[in-house]
């Protein structure tokens, strides 16, 4: 696939490259390529079809992505987890619940402990944490390539980093204290190598 793109990218005098087609679709193509392509588009059925597909793809992702980002605000569908995971999920829920309740009872800055584990499938609820309270993120790094240290990053729903740290694993767990807590919203917690190779990602819902 990429090789195809590269081949088109460096070939002179061809139909518009996939990259340029994408840029035209989002309105980023500028003259003189824009004028040349639009002339070409008037008489090239092949490029008309390519552009139609590109438009469909872009619009599909935009619509679906928007719906996807809206979903945490609506009751999520809940599937009965597989027995293997049921116990883990129940324990996880208990830990989160205890963390939240304990934090609520103690209005002091006692952090909520949030355990994040890998989950099978995409339908499971994201782990929840209280907004504006200190949090200790406990990340399960089982099955990851063993390293002496990992980078942990929290990004918001728009992908903006809001917290970064380095953590040393212990018993296949990483601990990352977020002392100031996080505002309400959807977040993703990412585990990287020190060279910033993404290894794992967890979803986190912070609720006010």
């Amino acid at each position: 696939m990429f090789q195809d793109d590269a081949a088109r990218q460096f070939a002179d005098n061809r139909h518009l490259t996939a990259e340029e087609l994408e840029r035209y679709s989002v309105g980023d193509l500028v003259d003189p390529v824009l004028a040349e392509f639009e002339d070409h588009l008037l008489v090239c059925e092949h490029c008309q079809q390519r552009l139609a597909l590109e438009d469909d793809f872009r619009q599909g992702v935009r619509g679906a992505g928007f719906l996807l980002l809206q979903q945490p605000q609506t009751p999520a569908r809940w599937r009965l987890p597989k027995p293997v995971w049921a116990f883990g999920l129940a324990a996880l829920g208990l830990i989160v619940l205890v963390g939240i309740e304990w934090s609520a009872l103690h209005r002091s800055a006692v952090p909520a402990v949030v355990l994040l584990q890998t989950a099978r499938g995409t339908e499971s609820q994201p782990v929840a944490a209280p907004a504006g309270k200190p949090i200790i993120l406990v990340l399960d790094v089982t099955d990851l390539h063993p390293l002496s240290k990992y980078k942990v990053e929290v990004v918001d729903a728009a992908g903006r980093p809001v917290f970064q740290s380095e953590a040393v694993p212990s018993n296949n767990k990483l601990q990352a204290p977020v002392a100031k807590g996080l505002p309400g919203g959807a977040y993703f917690i990412r585990v990287y190598t020190l060279a910033r190779e993404l290894l794992r990602e967890y979803a986190l819902a912070v609720r006010s």
């Binding site: 992702v61 679906a64 992505g65 928007f66 996807l68 980002l69 993703f188």
Partner: peptide, 25 residues
Amino acid sequence: NQQIALKVLKSIAPRDREILIRFYL
């Protein structure tokens, strides 16, 4: 199409999904 796209986005890897959402949405 949007509903199909939604199902598809849910089924791909989070990293791929994020790239698409960041770029297109």
